[in-house]
């Protein structure tokens, strides 16, 4: 590239002074590297992750693979029962979360409720969120005994926290115009909510409920580990006992497949709710063709 530098003469461009290269991007880059590497090293040293540890890890992983492969699907029926139980728990938790978070979401929205209300409600919601489901369940099990009931309560309570926050954000994002219009035409505060806020917020809130259901399925699967019903205990206890690991792995695979299917359905429903448009997947188009040929003669022209 030495030739080319001479090739370009600077005759017609005037004597413009080249700006100095600023220093701060380089400084920021070094700070970023330190912020990433420093804590990482602190963590690695603290966890005593030695070279020995790392050297043995692949072998140990390979051992595990040999233990779980091939997966033993002989108890898939039982697995399904347990997965169903997890689904029930997740569903009830979602219902608890949805019904209780809905009013709380209104009370936490700054454009609806006065500051004296939103502040305590918001702290309540973030307080609830700070308890992981598992910790909540550990506190509830002594009161309600082992089984899916305390699990559903724990996940439900946690869902109130997350859904309440999301609902309030949706409500804060609604267009204020219709509310003002209703108030201006003599409507009460409640009427403004019902006709001005709820129709605008509902699609997004519904989508969040569904999304929460997807998350709650995973949470309820986890809760089984501490004895709150569902698939978790099945997988956990199978993995503890080496000869049973292939069964545990089979259960894990079945769970993954189920969750994938439910996620896919839920995602397409959510898209449908938010956009108001039918999904464009092949399946959806087939359904459309089969079942929606003629509309009732509403448009009598």
């Amino acid at each position: 590239m030495t030739d080319s530098t001479e090739l370009w003469t600077k005759d017609d461009t005037g004597p413009v002074i080249r700006p100095d290269e600023p220093r701060w991007p380089k400084i920021i880059r070094w700070i970023a590297v330190i912020v990433i590497i420093g804590p990482l090293i602190w963590g690695l040293l603290g966890l005593e992750i030695s070279a020995d540890n790392l050297r043995r890890a692949p072998g140990q992983m390979w051992n595990l693979v040999q233990q779980v492969w091939p997966p033993d699907f002989s108890e898939t029926g039982r697995t399904f029962e347990k997965i169903l139980e997890s689904l029930y728990v997740a569903w009830i938790a979602t219902i608890i979360g949805a019904t209780l978070s809905f009013p709380l979401g209104f009370l936490a929205a700054t454009n609806i409720a006065p500051r004296s209300v939103t502040l305590p409600v918001r702290s309540l919601l973030s307080g609830i969120r700070a308890f992981p489901e598992l910790v909540l369940a550990i506190m509830l099990i002594p009161a309600f005994g082992l089984g899916p009931f305390p699990g559903a309560l724990a996940i439900g309570i946690h869902s109130i926290g997350t859904l309440g926050k999301l609902t309030s954000e949706v409500i804060e994002g609604v267009d204020e115009g219709p509310i003002e219009a209703i108030r201006a035409s003599g409507g009460t505060r409640m009427q403004a909510m019902q006709f001005g806020v709820v129709p605008q917020a509902m699609p997004n809130v519904l989508a969040y409920w569904l999304y929460r259901f997807e998350i709650n399925i995973r949470a309820s699967a986890v809760l089984g580990v501490i004895g709150a019903g569902g698939i978790g205990d099945e997988i956990y206890s199978r993995f503890l006992f080496v000869p049973d690991r292939s069964k545990g792995f089979a259960a894990l695979l079945v769970m993954i497949a189920t969750v994938l299917v439910i996620d896919a359905i839920s995602a397409s429903v959510r898209r449908r709710i938010i956009t108001g448009q039918p999904s464009r997947s092949m399946m959806a188009r087939l359904m459309q063709r089969l079942f929606a040929k003629k509309r009732p003669a509403e448009t009598s022209s």
Binding site: N53, V222, Y236, F239, L240, R245, L252, V259
Partner: peptide
């Protein structure tokens, strides 16, 4: 993405033992 946090822990404790690693 379908595997929850605790299940990852179950898998890796099964492989490398009950430790922070």
């Amino acid at each position: 993405r379908t595997i929850p946090d605790l299940f990852w822990a179950i898998i890796f404790t099964a492989a490398v033992g009950f430790n922070a690693f």
